[in-house]
Design a protein around this nucleic acid. Sequence first.
DNA 1: AAATTCTCCTGAAGGC
DNA 2: TGCCTTCAGGAGAATT
Length: 270
Amino acid sequence: MPELPEVETTRRGIEPHLLGHLLTGAQVRQPLLRWPVPPALSLKAPGRRVLAVERRAKYLLIRLDRGTIIIHLGMSGSLRLIPSKTPPGPHEHVDLLFGARCLRLRDPRRFGAVLWSDDDPLSHPRLAGLGPEPLGPAFDGDYLHWAGKSRRVAAKALIMDQRVVVGIGNIYANEALFRAGIHPGRSSGRISLERYARLAEAIKKVLECAIQQGGTTLRDFVREDGRPGYFVQSLQVYARTGLPCLRCGGAIREERIGQRSSFFCPSCQR
DNA sequence: AAATTCTCCTGAAGGC
DNA sequence: TGCCTTCAGGAGAATT
């Protein structure tokens, strides 16, 4: 599932191919994604040039000389760069054409989105109100401690709340909590500043490491050239139910916490 | 007000 | 073998 590392991997993959290029067309075969693809995409994007390819949270921002295309990969989305004449396969809903080259969105479960912003994309309703970037300077143990104090939500739910900090989904939440030695179900208000500092560091580490490996491919995610991400080999708890903890050898446990599958070592994580 | 539940969708996995 | 049911998951909306 695309989380921050997968989106950043995609951004880095497509940026050099799009920067400065003219968007020659936008074809929408299936507009019913998480939200309907706005007509503005097809009406306003063609004829514009790409000024920048950025990421905010799990959103990709393709900034044009007028307007910005906003793309979210949902949980099964991926973007490929292919020749424009390539016939579309199943679930390939949207094409952004750049002459002979095409940026194609495939999203079997259609939880993704393609949006349009006329002016500042960061003010778009979907992006306004997002928390700080976990790899940015505003995110540290002090901040997390502040955000979690006097709250009773599970630590895992706290760091997956995009209003608290962005980009962390189920996989990396599990991994970061393991690395920090914090039980995913622990109440947010009952974690010391010191442990929050460890957690913030663990989050940064695990995200940076995953970006270096090109993200995590479980099922659908591929990079712009079709290669998978290799961080799956570095997962220490996610989907390792019953397998030995890499730290103490005990069995990894799986429980549902906050409506999500959670994986943890009951002796290493408190 | 905060926390939980529901919702969208499809492919995979499990049951019989 | 194959059909039917169940479930995961990002994140906004609805509900408690």
